[in-house]
Design a protein around this nucleic acid. Structure first.
Lengths: 250, 250
DNA sequence: CGAGTGCTTGAATCCGGTCAATATGGGTGG
DNA sequence: CCACCCATATTGACCGGATTCAAGCACTCG
């Protein structure tokens, strides 16, 4: 039986990320939404846009952090390398999320701890570190919003540390799939569709296991009717049962 | 052979945490150090102090977050519980570090994700959530400093996720001991002394393993001459070799 | 000095990793 | 449009590190 792929290639026109559109995008960001139109126009002029192809590196771990990035269109994966060659997937970010920034005062010593790679075609707004810090220093509300965002990211990391330390691989995988379906999936009549390259290796690198084990457990989930998967997509058919396996206990 | 304990009971006089001393403490905090004396006096009056006994709970996971805490004297451990009864040690905080705060706007929905317990006798400065947010909103430099601190805490959590996912228990334990020796240990002629209650269970709950395994590996480290341990203390005799085992690769 | 808590050590078990062989599906070029 | 090719996914068998269960030890405090 031939599996029907629900994947559709979304082509991104360069125009959709043009100057006039940028103001709208900036205005929609959680950390700029409270600013008036005037300040936002000034901010807008500090940003420049940049396109990335799927698989293209945005910045490398270990390199100096000089700019601050905001995703306008597309998805970006953040990962750390280890000396033994393993990768750890830190996160996959979508439109409206930021990356690469650093608040550390000392400009000379600050390096990216992670690598950022475009997962899909991306349009990314970029701003120099100093300009960016100026904005946050001038608008307290912006800085406060960033504190909120960092706090929620910290909580996510804390639950991940907890899961790694105490939960079985099955639970961790259920957790991972649940989280990404929740964050980046699109509801369809069949379930929540994760329609971007999200391989068994990615799954494993986020859950702290191997691709083989990830594959095995995904197969189990499929047998139980929780999931349907194809090459570059995955549909979560029963979100509730999946979160039950993950035992999300906030 | 009877092991000589280098532990000395430090008794904390209540007076050492009195009003006049408080200004000094606040001024020494990384996030207030840039403020002038005048603003600091105003801030000081918003803080109240509170003493805690060893083992006493400062706040419980799940409870609403209403205040912001700064450690003046003593050490505090932060931990998460799991439904299965396991604990995960998130961190041990010392003087000058903060805990319990939340920057989330929506006051009604914000709860502590972790539990805070006094590890030693503590003197802790406490401030209401709203007063605290006012300070950060008024002084951009304060907010920026907090962004810096959150950033460094996030990095620590990221490396922990990475270690959990890819490193052996031996490496994780070496990492844990190294980090706490570095952060809270006191250099002596014999090595770095960790002189607060830091049990095998604590070690395990931070490293993501069991007390038994922690004990086994600590024994190995002792045989190798890296450590000396007693009931409530631990001396790291060879920090370099320990960090080599941990393979700290920043 | 006895009780209790935390530490140590042993032996058995098991989950998950490793290595390896096979299958599958999507993209590509003839 | 079809056949081939390659990357990814799947599945199996084996192995080993770490947990679990359990027993004995040691330090501290009442």
């Amino acid at each position: 039986m031939r599996q029907e792929s629900p994947l559709k290639k979304e082509s991104i026109s360069v125009e959709s990320c043009s100057y006039d559109h940028r103001l709208n995008i900036l205005h929609g960001l959680p950390f700029y939404s409270m600013l008036d139109h005037h300040s936002l126009q000034a901010i807008n002029s500090s940003y420049s846009e940049h396109g990335y192809q799927p698989g293209e590196t945005i910045y490398l771990s270990g390199k100096k952090s000089t700019r601050f990035y905001v995703i306008a269109i597309g998805k970006v994966k953040l990962l750390e390398h280890t000396s033994s060659g393993h990768n750890v997937l830190l996160d996959i970010l979508g439109p409206g999320e930021f990356l690469g920034g650093s608040w550390t005062e000392d400009q000379t010593t600050h390096f990216h701890s992670e690598t950022a790679i475009a997962l899909t075609q991306c349009c990314i707004l970029e701003i120099d570190r100093s300009d960016f810090k100026d904005i946050a220093s001038k608008h307290a509300a912006v800085a406060m919003k960033f504190l909120e965002i960092l706090e929620s990211r910290m909580r996510m990391l804390q639950t991940r540390v907890k899961m790694q330390a105490t939960a079985s691989v099955e639970r961790r995988l259920a957790f991972t799939i649940y989280k990404f379906a929740d964050k980046l999936g699109k509801p369809t009549k069949n379930g929540v569709l994760i329609q971007f390259p999200f391989s068994r290796a990615d799954l494993a690198e986020f859950s702290g296991t191997t691709p083989e084990t990830a594959s095995r457990i995904v197969s189990q989930f499929k047998k139980k009717g929780l999931l349907e998967t194809g090459r570059q997509w995955m549909t979560v058919k029963d979100v509730l049962r999946l979160s039950a396996i993950a035992e999300i206990d906030e």
